[in-house]
Simulated assay, not measured.
Amino acid sequence: MTPSPLIAIVDDDGAIRNGLSSLLRSEGYGVELFASAEAFLDRSAPNALDCLITDIQMPGLTGLELQAILRKDRPSMPVIIMTAFPEPTYRERATANGAICFLSKPFNADELLNCVGRAVRQPR
């Protein structure tokens, strides 16, 4: 049996992390939750992950800074960026760094699931 794709969620808001986790688990995905970019970067086995969903605005490293680090260290990992502050410069930066999706909060479940589905299907 093929293992379920493993999705990392990085957001400082626990309610967002838990809500997204419930949605993705209900669709058969494995999920790991992180309250900060730094906690994610401390993870011992990033190669086991199939996709990263990250918020932009967080204490410490931002989601865009995390994306830039991953682009160097793990360029094939699909990244989905989400934000409550969808400024054009954020979208441009996320897209330029290869984000598979840029979601403005609040977004609907189907939008996120479509993005995750594209992310886990893309070749690496």
Rank of each mutant, 00 (worst) to 15 (best):
N108I: 11
I100M: 07
L33I: 01
L24G: 03
E87R: 12
N108R: 13
F40T: 06
C51I: 02
A109W: 09
L41D: 08
M77R: 10
P5D: 10
L49F: 11
F107P: 10
D12I: 00
P5E: 07
Q57C: 06
L49D: 11
D110E: 15
E65C: 09
L61M: 14
Q57F: 01
A99L: 11
L49T: 09
L6G: 02
E32L: 15
M77A: 07
T54C: 09
E87A: 11
I80L: 06
G28C: 12
I69C: 01
P46M: 05
T62E: 10
F34E: 03
G63E: 09
A8P: 08
N114L: 08
P86Y: 08
V10E: 01
P5Y: 03
L61A: 09
Q67R: 11
E111L: 13
N97L: 15
T83C: 04
P86M: 06
L23T: 03
F40Y: 13
I81K: 01
T54M: 05
R17D: 01
D11C: 06
A109Y: 11
V10L: 02
A84T: 02
D11V: 00
R121H: 12
I7P: 05
T54P: 06
P3H: 04
S36W: 05
A84Y: 02
A45T: 10
P88T: 08
D110Y: 04
Y29M: 09
C51T: 02
D11G: 03
S104H: 07
N18E: 14
T83P: 01
P59D: 13
Y29P: 11
L41C: 08
S44V: 08
P3M: 02
I7A: 07
T2K: 11
S21K: 12
N97G: 08
E32Q: 14
N47S: 15
L23H: 04
I100P: 06
I69L: 06
A94F: 10
P86T: 05
G28D: 11
G63H: 03
S26C: 06
R124I: 02
I7N: 04
E111G: 07
E87K: 11
V79K: 03
L52S: 05
E87T: 05
N114R: 13
Y90C: 05
D42S: 09
A45Y: 04
A99K: 10
P123V: 07
R121P: 00
L66M: 12
S44P: 04
F85P: 00
L20A: 07
P3I: 01
L61Y: 08
N47Q: 15
E92C: 05
L23M: 07
A68Y: 02
